[in-house]
Amino acid sequence: MEIILTTTIVITVIGIIVGAGLVFMGKKFHVDVDEREAAVRECLPGNNCGACGYAGCDAAAAAIVAEEAPVTVCPVGGAAVATKIGGIMGANAEPVERKVAFVKCRGTCAVTKNQGAYTGIRDCRAAVLSGMNLAECDYGCIGLGSCAAVCPQNAITVTDGVAKVNEARCVGCGLCVKACPKNLIELVPESKFVRVECSNRDKGPFVKKVCTAGCIGCGICAKQCGSDAITVENNLAHVRYENCILCGKCVEKCPAKVILPRKAEEPETKSA
């Protein structure tokens, strides 16, 4: 009987001491957890692609709550996610248009020649380092599909030597932009379908020599444009998407036919 009593008393006393210690420690080392962080994290897509520039969705949520990042930081979620996060944060989310990746080259086998046969690792970056240019054009798509390899959505396919983005599948994460050693890929607002499909910054005659589908930098498009939405720099036309009203005048007049109105939507291909 005595043993039971002693044990009970000892255990109780230890319990009280430890309990008091825990309460004290809890108060002393208290960290404020922002409930909004969990809520914001819930809204984010959760594929941890890193396109926002943070290590993953958790890090992005923390940055949003700490007001280091805007509520529109997630390019994948787009407007829908931004509105939701805006609701949580109490900030008004400006509607952001969904951006899609766009390959600024149409140098297919039909319009440009191959310069030499490349053998080695099937990766654009390795090919560029080896010094072999697959195509005659120094600026164009290499076509070994480094962009397609990094795409988490299988939205990029290389057909006929040029990478092409399936805009319906693209989430605008921008991983392909970073992967392209030729800097050919750009994120553009989805609705602005008037785009220059070339990246060659050489003068007209040089472009003509290597590719029949290249921008020759003639500047006719810039002259045609009524809303100052197209500029020619370094012999290459570029659309200022925020000014473009999609009138299509430049498309009509382009002698090289390099400004193309994209078809409204490409049909969704079967998932790979």
Partner: peptide
Amino acid sequence: RPLTQTFKQIKAE
């Protein structure tokens, strides 16, 4: 295996 080419590439990266 294309070892040297792999290393050249990753070194550049």
